[in-house]
Structures are given as C-alpha cells and as structure tokens.
Amino acid sequence: MTATIRIQADPIDAAAETTALTRGRADIGAVVAFTGLCRDEGGRLAALELEHYPGMAEAEIGRIADVAQTRWPLLGLTVIHRFGKIGPGEEIVLVLAASAHRQAAFEAASFLMDYLKTHAPFWKREHLKDGTVGDWVEAKEIDDRAVERWR
C-alpha cells in the first residue's frame, strides 16, 4: 500500500480526498478522518503562519506513515498538511486512515497525529488581529506526553 502525502498551500477538500482513497475499493470497512483546524485563540488570532522545509517535511511524514503501516493493517492512508497563512476555521491537516476494521483505522490516525505534532518539521507563528506578529509557537509538553503512549 502506498500512502498519499502532500504539503500544500491550497485548502483541503476532505470529501474529495476520502472519495479518492475509497473509490472502487470493496475491501475497506472503515475510514477514520481527522481534520485539524486553525483556532481563533479567543478571538485574537487573524492567521496562523506555517513554514516547513520542502522535501524534509514530506520525507518525515513518509517515515511516520511507514511506521503506521507496519503497526496496523492499513488499506489506505492519506496525510495532507498545509503551509502558509491559514485563517481561523480553515483546515491545517487531514489524516485519513483506511482499514478493513475500525480499531486499526482509529489507532493509526491517532498515532499519525501524535507524531505529526511532535516530529514533522513545521513551524507556526501567530498573526494577531491587532496587527502584531507573535513569536514562533513553542512545542507543547502535552504533545510530547501524548506520543509517549506509542513507544
């Protein structure tokens, strides 16, 4: 099984991606979809800026996807991550994990998100409604703790 991995500036069409993953497939019994959205941080955020190293980010996401495919019996996998300025309510990331049974799909999607949050080389900076640009957002300890459950 080959995973679909993309990093793009354009919005993500989750329905179209799910259709592309499952079209003509009668062996898939479950698709778990996770869509991460940009929050408005209490109304103060105008946009979240995401940067990455092209090539490096795709390679790391591919490595994480390979690990997921060895741990669970996946029949399909899609990971799409955006970069650039993303407004509140817009998609940042989409993970689709397909399997014959739901448990593998749920666990693989959760694993992928935990590792994307902690290992994928993306940097985030807040652009506030008052016109100021914040510092680069630091990694959160809660994300580091979440990934520990998979070791």
Rank of each mutant, 00 (worst) to 15 (best):
90 E>W: 03
46 A>E: 11
90 E>L: 06
94 L>G: 07
64 I>G: 05
71 R>V: 11
107 E>R: 15
90 E>P: 04
105 A>G: 08
46 A>G: 05
73 P>Q: 06
61 I>F: 13
41 E>M: 13
79 V>M: 10
31 V>I: 14
68 A>C: 11
89 G>L: 09
112 L>R: 03
67 V>K: 13
39 R>E: 12
53 Y>P: 08
109 A>T: 10
82 R>D: 10
65 A>W: 01
85 K>G: 02
57 A>R: 02
75 L>P: 00
52 H>L: 06
89 G>R: 07
50 L>Y: 15
54 P>V: 06
110 S>R: 15
83 F>R: 07
57 A>G: 05
39 R>T: 10
76 G>C: 14
33 A>M: 14
103 Q>D: 14
42 G>T: 15
41 E>Y: 06
55 G>M: 11
103 Q>E: 15
53 Y>W: 15
82 R>G: 07
96 L>C: 03
32 V>M: 05
105 A>W: 01
39 R>H: 08
82 R>P: 08
68 A>Y: 07
69 Q>A: 06
75 L>K: 10
113 M>C: 14
88 P>N: 09
110 S>V: 10
109 A>L: 02
103 Q>C: 03
60 E>M: 13
79 V>I: 14
97 A>V: 02
112 L>A: 09
45 L>E: 12
67 V>E: 15
68 A>I: 09
49 E>S: 10
42 G>I: 11
48 L>T: 09
110 S>H: 08
60 E>L: 14
108 A>G: 01
80 I>A: 00
54 P>Q: 13
85 K>L: 11
34 F>A: 02
64 I>T: 11
39 R>Y: 11
110 S>M: 06
47 A>V: 06
95 V>P: 07
47 A>E: 09
56 M>L: 15
69 Q>C: 09
43 G>I: 04
50 L>K: 03
109 A>H: 01
52 H>Q: 13
56 M>G: 06
84 G>N: 04
105 A>F: 00
48 L>R: 00
94 L>T: 05
72 W>V: 04
95 V>W: 09
106 F>Y: 15
69 Q>K: 08
71 R>S: 10
102 R>H: 12
78 T>L: 11
108 A>Q: 03
105 A>Y: 00
70 T>M: 08
36 G>E: 15
89 G>H: 07
43 G>T: 01
43 G>L: 11
84 G>S: 08
82 R>T: 10
63 R>Q: 13
80 I>N: 00
85 K>Y: 03
59 A>G: 09
74 L>E: 01
